[in-house]
């Protein structure tokens, strides 16, 4: 049940990401909803589920719209593991925590891309990339993150309730 709902949420996020959000560019960047979901799921549920969610969410992006199949899955999976690592260490209902980690991990995610560009295509204009792609996207993601996190916490609590009531002690 949980797996099914999470997959649907990821798929929906991807569809919105690749279609409607293309029209929401500010300063030539768009927010990345799927990455945001991966970070938030991992913060709420921990590393193992984070890795799975990251892998599946990344796979959707790869197969349906990405440039190189496997790239988003790989980065998504490790972002999930890393974000899930902080799961027990912070109070997860605190929005500032979610905000802070959204910024940090979006930055990490995009910086991984920069490294890839650096090693494969010899892209050396790091200052420009930071100013025009990485930091604006991290900030944009943070702005969108708060409502997304609120909805996710609600869904997670609801699923938790359902699972509790069907569990036998």
């Amino acid at each position: 049940m949980r797996a099914f709902i999470v997959t649907i949420i990821l798929l929906l996020a991807f569809v919105v990401q690749s279609t409607v959000l293309q029209y929401s560019q500010i300063f030539n960047v768009k927010p990345n909803l799927v990455i945001m979901l991966i970070i938030h799921f991992s913060l709420i549920r921990g590393s193992v589920e984070g890795a799975i969610v990251g892998f599946i969410g990344g796979l959707f992006m790869d197969i349906l719209a990405g440039r190189i199949v496997g790239l988003y899955s790989l980065i998504g999976m490790y972002i999930g593991v890393a974000a899930g690592y902080f799961n027990k260490r912070f109070y997860k209902d605190n929005y500032f925590v979610a905000l802070f980690f959204t910024f940090i991990f979006t930055f990490a995610f995009e910086f991984t891309f920069y490294l890839l560009f650096y090693f494969i295509w010899g892209e050396t204009r790091i200052l420009y990339v930071l100013q025009h792609i990485i930091v604006p996207e991290a900030i944009y993601n943070c702005v969108v993150a708060v409502p997304v996190y609120m909805v996710l916490i609600k869904i997670d609590n609801w699923l938790e309730e359902r699972e509790k009531s069907s569990r036998k002690y």
């Binding site: 991807f14 690749s18 279609t19 719209a65 995009e110 792609i133």
Partner: peptide
Amino acid sequence: VIAKEPGNWFQVFT
């Protein structure tokens, strides 16, 4: 056109 690359790095669409 039904989708565009989700990130900000590639100019690819479906």
